[in-house]
Nucleic acid binder design. Sequence first.
DNA 1: CCAATCAGAATTGTCGACAATAGAAACGGC
DNA 2: GCCGTTTCTATTGTCGACAATTCTGATTGG
Lengths: 244, 244
Amino acid sequence: MLRPTRQTNQGNSAALSSKPIKTGPRVYEEIRRMAMDYRFKPNERINEVALAARLNVSRSPIREALQRLVTEELITFQTNRGFFCRGFDVDEIVNLSDVRAVLEERSVRLAIQRASDEELAALVDWWTLTMARADSFSSTELTARDEEFHIRIARLSGNPELARMLEGINTRIHFVRKIEVEKHRRLSTTYTEHSEIARAMVARDADGAARLMHDHIAISVADAMSTVREGLARIYVDVDVDQI
Amino acid sequence: MLRPTRQTNQGNSAALSSKPIKTGPRVYEEIRRMAMDYRFKPNERINEVALAARLNVSRSPIREALQRLVTEELITFQTNRGFFCRGFDVDEIVNLSDVRAVLEERSVRLAIQRASDEELAALVDWWTLTMARADSFSSTELTARDEEFHIRIARLSGNPELARMLEGINTRIHFVRKIEVEKHRRLSTTYTEHSEIARAMVARDADGAARLMHDHIAISVADAMSTVREGLARIYVDVDVDQI
DNA sequence: CCAATCAGAATTGTCGACAATAGAAACGGC
DNA sequence: GCCGTTTCTATTGTCGACAATTCTGATTGG
């Protein structure tokens, strides 16, 4: 099965995408998404040939993408044993949250210091609009909006390195965050917290915004444990339904 | 030239290292070091075949190593155009220093909170010993000690994610730091600053240590510009003398 | 019944080959 | 003499093949 003859490099993805998307970047993005969503089970070995067959490419682009993901900490690697899905660990989540809190605090402070009034007003408007539509969004969409809120602030900080590191953390805690979004959806506290942060930014209240941001991000070990429990349940109950 | 016949995977590195070091990790480490030291000129295109020939391997391990280094921000990549050495830029250095300062402050605070008296005493002793021997160290060795001082504190923070991020920043600013070490060597201010930080840690003075750390790391734009100027001079004057 | 050993199978590590793309040089029109 | 083509060359992207290593699980001895 699956295309025994040599293909002339283009026709992959079986006429699904008519655009000639480069396989390298496509493969990277696809595996990255899989890792973010824990489509691989924690600590599971990732079989290169199986993955290559699934994505209709050879092992070369697979391995290159996996190597990149290793330094992004989305997967791990052991010589002669291959690539593994990262674990799903309470300590890691707590530690990442701690780092994230520090960086996000710096992020708002710099944004308050450097962003224009228009930019901050745009942030408030965008989030207000998002909140109004919140009920029509799926959890996935809502998670994306949550992530975007923080990314926007990071961009406004004017420090691309800071933004990049926060994005790196975001991809690592994406799965956790999605669970938290659904939890909070019932409480709907997240959205008001974002509003408060944005308001403090408009008011140029650096200390206040930083404190709000910190409290918004800080996570208790108990909360982390509960989230991990919930996450593990999902990881091991959802079934792969997309076989070609 | 250079070994036309197929080699049976081992005999590379031409009997230099009798140990059977895995080529993958070795290649990665070697290229990484080259990038850290700006053995590639800023924004220079990195030729895969030339690099492969130089390290006596095929392009596969080269490309995998380069992909890893891309996410470490040590090199850049453009589809169908290949890999490039990162630039040597004032803004980048300033931005990285800003992030670093925030993370290192958190690092000392956590270390003060979590490290044992013995661990902190060991830190002081080690640095005292290092200072005593300082004159006998080359600039490279001294830079390594400087980096190690900060890494040790990061480890004592008990947050591996924090430590990892700082290590990532360290590799990116290694070249800058080496220049700064040589500058300060004449002033020999770095070493006393380290001593002060360590003393504040032993005294469990979190605010004091954090402030000292911040001032130790903070860099003015003017300083950064001067360092970049000096760095560019070195990059473009030093000649490759190691042609096999 | 369990532990250690040892084939056989599965998987990874690295290589050379070739097509596709980008880059450089030669060419010609103006 | 300069700018846009066109051809040719250099370089990257991806592949399949094979050796080296690890994993599996069957076998044997205690």
